[in-house]
Each structure stands twice: as C-alpha cells, then as structure tokens.
Write a protein that binds this DNA or RNA. Structure first.
Length: 268
DNA sequence: ACCCAGGAAATTC
DNA sequence: GAATTTCATGGG
C-alpha cells in the first residue's frame, strides 16, 4: 500500500524516537513492526509512505496511526516561534509525529519503562508479546490485551524478566480489563482528572500517566518529564515551564527529548 | 565491584 | 510531609 503526498514525516524520527517500542530498523532502511494486529514494514520514498504487508482497506488505519491528517508543518512553525532552542530542536527532527498507539499497549509499555533503558524495554515488550500475544507469523505476535494479562500471576510473567514491574503490569491489566479504569473515558477527561485516574494503578505515577496520555491517548497537551527532559529543561530552557508550550506541548516535548538524546554532550 | 537506566512504592526521618 | 532507600534485571 502507498500513501502519497507526504511531508513533515520521517520513519526513523517517528518510529525510533522513544514513543513506541515495537519498531525495528531493517537493513534496507524500512521499519518493521506490529500495530492493529498487522505485521508490516514501513518505508519512505520521496513523498510516499510505502507499507508492505497492508492493502488499501487498511489505509485509514495507518493514516490515523501515523497521524498523517494533522498539520505538523503549521504546528512546528508556531512552536518554533516560541523559543529559539525549540526552533533548533524542531529543525533537527522535523519529521517527528506522535503516533496513535493502542492505549493499553502504551500504558503497559510505559509501566515497563520505569527505571529502565530503551533496549531492555524493547526486549521485555517483545518477550511479553511472544509469550502471551497472538501469533501472526512465525516471528510476529500481537501485543496481548489486558484481559489476557489480567488472568496471569507474577510467576507467569517470570519469563519476560520484567523484574519488580511484573505486579504493576498485572495490576494495570486487571483494572483495565474489569472496567475499573476506562481508557476511552480518560481520553476526553480534564487533564488532571485523567492523570489521577491512571495513577490508581500501582506503578503508575505522574510520568507514566503523562506518557500514556500523550502516546496512547493522543493528548498533545501533555508534557512528560523524565530524567532526560528534566535535564533538558533545566539546561536548555531554565526559565520556561512546560505549560508555556500550550496545546501542542507534547509535540514540543518530543522534539526536545529526541534532540537531547541525540546530543548527550550538551549535558556533561 | 560499581553505576545507571524515559520511576514509583515503601520506608525512614 | 519531605527526603532516602529499595525494587529486578542487564549493560557498560
């Protein structure tokens, strides 16, 4: 499948910028991964996105997943005018987009992310899918839904080697599966109520809540503050508070996070 | 051996 | 209540 006339999009900047953990770069430069129950590889050639493994009936799904209907050029322009260093960060990776991931997958992935590093997060997520997801092909498995995980015990999760996070994953799954927490209601809640609701889960604090809101529920005003972002804010934006960035603060966050991760020398 | 990793819970002061 | 310690695992 081909989606034409694409601007302001880059596969690596979007799929390998720390917002999702199931995309891996292949030798030909495309990214393979699984979303919406489909295993595909995504490449960009000139102004066309080529998705191998999908057909035109999936076009709507992938257009939405990659957030292609939002005018990032305009948003980037307006964010860039707010601050010279944000302008620098946005120019550095103008092809970032915030994915529309499955909310439960984002919640679960960012529970796993705590006090952890990105390669290991990917490993745990991969093992979780292999053990408990549905097989698509020999090498590709779906992300297991909350109902499946809710029935497990921490011992069942032992093989994925999530450590102390195992019981957090199960607590989240149970609260989502039995409806105690309704992610789709949270999608439209006032932001502080939404945070509080997510933080009913053991193992979800403000940072994981904000990541779930931004990356799983597409709340673009959320601005997750992790160790990188705290460091970036205090050195690059000493006089700026996150809400300064306004309704698209989350996109600004992703520009700054990616820029900081690619320039560690700024923080020695 | 030691330190850190897209934090948060448990404990202590 | 605020500050510190602990949590499980793997890599540098």
């Amino acid at each position: 499948m081909i989606i034409e006339n694409i601007t302001d999009f880059d596969t690596e900047q979007t799929l390998d910028c720390g917002q999702a953990f199931r995309w891996t770069k292949q030798e030909d430069g495309t990214f393979k991964g699984i979303a919406g129950g489909k295993a595909v590889s995504i490449g960009l050639v000139e102004n066309s996105i080529i998705i191998d493994g999908a057909d035109d009936t999936d076009k709507e799904f992938w257009t939405h997943y990659l957030d292609l209907d939002l005018d990032y050029r305009n948003i980037r322009k307006s964010l860039s005018q707010m601050h010279p260093i944000l302008n620098e960060a946005a120019q550095f990776a103008p092809g970032i987009r915030i994915l529309n991931q499955d909310p439960w997958e984002a919640l679960c992935s960012f529970i796993i992310s705590q006090n952890n590093n990105i390669p290991r997060i990917k490993g745990i997520v991969e093992r979780l899918c292999r053990e408990f997801g549905d097989k698509i092909t020999e090498e590709c498995y779906t992300f297991p839904n909350a109902e499946i995980i809710a029935q497990l015990s921490p011992e069942d999760l032992q093989p994925i080697r999530a450590g102390f996070r195992a019981r957090y994953i199960i607590d989240g799954a149970r609260k989502v599966a039995d409806g105690e927490i309704d992610l789709e209601k949270i999608r439209t809640m006032e932001i502080n109520d939404a945070r509080k609701e997510l933080m009913k889960i053991t193992g979800v604090g403000i940072k994981v809540a904000d990541c779930t809101l931004l990356y799983g529920l597409h709340r673009l005003d959320c601005f997750p503050l992790d160790v990188w972002m705290k460091r970036a804010m205090s050195t690059l934006f000493p006089d700026v508070s996150p809400d300064f960035f306004g309704e698209y603060a989350g996109i600004a966050q992703q520009y700054i996070f990616h820029y900081s991760r690619m320039h560690p020398e700024l923080f020695l």
